[in-house]
Nucleic acid binder design. Sequence first.
DNA 1: AACACGCCCTGCGCGC
DNA 2: TGCGCGCAGGGCGTGT
Length: 276
Amino acid sequence: MPELPEVETVRQGLIQAVLNRKIKDVEIFQPQLRFPVPVEKLQRDIIGCEIRSIQRRGKYLILELSNNLSIIVHLGMSGRLFVTSHNSKIDKHDHVIISLEGGEHLRFRDPRRFGMIDVYPSDDLENHARLRDLGVEPLTSDFDINYCFKKVKNSQRPIKNMLMDASFVVGLGNIYTSEALYEAKIHPGRASNSLTKKHWKLLIASIQSVLKEAITQGGTTLQDEGFKNVLGSGGMFQLKLKVYGKAGESCETCGHPIIRLVQQGRSSFFCKKCQR
DNA sequence: AACACGCCCTGCGCGC
DNA sequence: TGCGCGCAGGGCGTGT
């Protein structure tokens, strides 16, 4: 479900809702997520701690605790982290519930169970198995023309697939790759190493502007049951989508129909007249 | 070594 | 109304 803008929206919400609050209890209802939930570690090590900072690395959220441990969370396709009263009804997909001092719950809900939760030393996060091989953050200056050009110079992979590869650049998923490639007028099937530095300049700028605008809009909520922030509200970026999910509709720029293309088993959307 | 693919799971909308 | 199918915002592990 969530890509970088949605995860960043959750991060900003968590800063408002749970920063510096104390963990009173933790309950695990479903330990089988993408990876097994470290039940004993959670129950033994996080109770009594305060949440000192909330960071993001790619699509991972990192809640740094007062005891040099961090809780790492990935939302997968359908995961949510949200804050609610301890009285509110527990859903069958509320897998982990963290009780905070003051009577609120921080809950991890994830119907498809593609998400994960782990606990790991804060000073060693760069060696965590899920974090150590991640590529650059797209909204930092590390994501520049030279990095991109060098990294893909021997690769004929389609650029869509390359942008979805987290060992190259993190945070981009199916929605925002399609949107950024449309803005940059680059065909999703184009070989990565055919992009010139000029292309990369435009593509990097397009990725950054799409992601920033999506963060401003609080992410993309495609259906009622789609993405929700920490307080339970949806985002607004779905109103700004140009191609994602719009197969058969007219391209805003030229009027030609938007095409759906399957790459690596996932849908891409593009305009074959505007994107080359 | 680089790359595509199947698969992990539940839920929804569609055609029949 | 129910059933089977395809599809869904991610990414790991496997096989070529």
